[in-house]
Simulated assay, not measured.
Amino acid sequence: MDRPNLPLNGLRAFEVAARQGSFTRAAIELRVTQAAVSQQIQRLEDLLGHRLFTRASTGLILTDIGAALHPVLTRNFDQMGEVLDRFQGGRYRETLNLGVVTTFATGWLIPRLAAFEAGHPDISLRLFTHNNRIDIAREGLHMAIRFGDRTAWPWLEARPLIAAPLTPLCAPDLLDRLRRPHDLAGLRLLRSYRADEWAAWFAAAGADCPPLEGPVLDSSVAMADLAAAGHGAALLPASMFARQLQAGTLARPFDTQIEAGRYWLTWPRGKPQTVAMAHLDAWLRDTIAGG
């Protein structure tokens, strides 16, 4: 198809709908109506003479031709957007969209952002916090920092950043009640969606794990806030809450800790790093190595 005849509006609508898995979410991203998205894609299908989607109860499913077309469009739209971003405002500047698990953002990255920005004035770093469940491509990110085990993301490139062993943290005024690990059974044990962590910690401490009850939270920051307010003990990476421990809003009753994963810098497998991605990767590596 000749370049002047490329159906750019339809291709853009298709790319977003395929990435979002929904005409409704595509309409939100494109800031148009759902009907407009549907019409653009219908025109594209009529032009090609092929269906691009089939509908299912779980959302949109790409046909064979849709599956072949989608990655090509995503790659090229990303490249065009990155080039245009660099020249906004009359000066060269590269934008880098970084997803960051909230605990790492507040406990390590944000206090050091000024140093990165001072050393890289040509990079506009945009942070998007998440709860460790994130889709880089769908959310328009270049890279993401997440917590866990490397085997959890075999489709991504991943470089280890910081180990983050977990240990119980609580309000300082609860310390007198916690002489041995079993004493934690007298408190509410705040839980994350990783259900086996408390059992692993009690096993490492040589004690039986009590029955676990109460709400399950998907944010370590929220668990830390509840623990600091005296609502129980939370199993958290102490290194990410060093400021609260130093300020005395949180306390660490026991030395026992367990390895449940580490923080990783991740990006799509097979996608070359941009200049900004390479600079961030190197800065993280150098800053962590420097303590």
Score class of each variant (00 low, 15 high):
residue 168 P to S: 04
residue 178 L to P: 10
residue 221 V to T: 03
residue 57 S to W: 02
residue 135 D to T: 01
residue 275 V to L: 10
residue 85 D to R: 12
residue 38 S to V: 11
residue 214 G to V: 13
residue 92 Y to V: 13
residue 191 R to S: 12
residue 195 A to Q: 15
residue 234 A to D: 04
residue 49 G to M: 08
residue 133 R to P: 01
residue 188 R to P: 15
residue 105 A to Y: 00
residue 274 T to N: 12
residue 43 R to G: 03
residue 199 A to G: 15
residue 278 A to E: 01
residue 47 L to D: 11
residue 14 F to I: 08
residue 270 G to N: 06
residue 216 V to M: 14
residue 91 R to P: 15
residue 135 D to Y: 01
residue 145 I to W: 03
residue 215 P to E: 15
residue 290 G to C: 10
residue 164 A to N: 04
residue 87 F to R: 15
residue 229 A to K: 10
residue 97 N to W: 02
residue 177 R to W: 02
residue 127 L to I: 09
residue 107 G to C: 00
residue 195 A to R: 14
residue 50 H to Q: 15
residue 95 T to W: 04
residue 92 Y to D: 14
residue 228 A to Q: 02
residue 268 P to V: 09
residue 118 A to Y: 09
residue 271 K to P: 07
residue 3 R to T: 07
residue 268 P to I: 02
residue 50 H to S: 15
residue 56 A to C: 04
residue 271 K to I: 11
residue 24 T to V: 12
residue 152 A to T: 04
residue 25 R to A: 09
residue 271 K to E: 03
residue 142 H to A: 08
residue 183 D to M: 09
residue 57 S to L: 05
residue 30 L to D: 13
residue 9 N to A: 12
residue 227 A to H: 03
residue 219 S to N: 09
residue 129 T to P: 06
residue 282 A to C: 05
residue 95 T to N: 01
residue 170 C to A: 12
residue 109 L to F: 00
residue 148 G to V: 00
residue 151 T to Y: 05
residue 223 M to T: 07
residue 209 C to I: 04
residue 233 A to E: 03
residue 167 T to R: 03
residue 78 D to W: 06
residue 228 A to G: 10
residue 6 L to E: 11
residue 199 A to K: 15
residue 162 I to E: 07
residue 172 P to I: 05
residue 107 G to D: 00
residue 28 I to C: 13
residue 200 A to L: 12
residue 278 A to Y: 02
residue 69 L to H: 14
residue 76 N to C: 09
residue 284 L to S: 02
residue 49 G to R: 08
residue 48 L to R: 15
residue 251 A to E: 08
residue 274 T to I: 10
residue 85 D to G: 14
residue 58 T to D: 11
residue 252 R to F: 03
residue 269 R to E: 00
residue 45 E to P: 15
residue 122 D to E: 15
residue 5 N to W: 05
residue 39 Q to P: 06
residue 213 E to W: 08
residue 198 W to R: 12
residue 242 A to Q: 08
residue 239 S to M: 09
residue 245 L to Y: 07
residue 275 V to D: 05
residue 167 T to G: 14
residue 186 G to E: 05
residue 37 V to R: 08
residue 194 R to N: 12
residue 120 H to L: 06
residue 248 G to K: 14
residue 75 R to M: 07
residue 141 L to R: 03
residue 242 A to T: 07
residue 10 G to Y: 06
residue 103 T to V: 04
residue 155 W to G: 06
residue 143 M to R: 07
residue 198 W to Q: 13
residue 130 H to P: 10
residue 55 R to M: 13
residue 144 A to V: 05
residue 80 M to S: 12
residue 148 G to A: 02
residue 230 G to L: 02
residue 65 I to R: 12
residue 233 A to Y: 02
residue 57 S to H: 11
residue 4 P to L: 10
residue 46 D to T: 12
residue 173 D to E: 10
residue 98 L to C: 03
residue 21 G to Q: 06
residue 288 I to G: 10
residue 78 D to I: 10
residue 195 A to M: 12
residue 59 G to S: 08
residue 239 S to D: 09
residue 186 G to I: 05
residue 120 H to I: 02
residue 67 A to P: 12
residue 183 D to Q: 01
residue 132 N to Q: 04
residue 143 M to F: 04
residue 43 R to A: 00
residue 202 F to A: 15
residue 259 E to H: 13
residue 230 G to S: 05
residue 104 F to R: 01
residue 186 G to W: 06
residue 227 A to M: 04
residue 152 A to E: 03
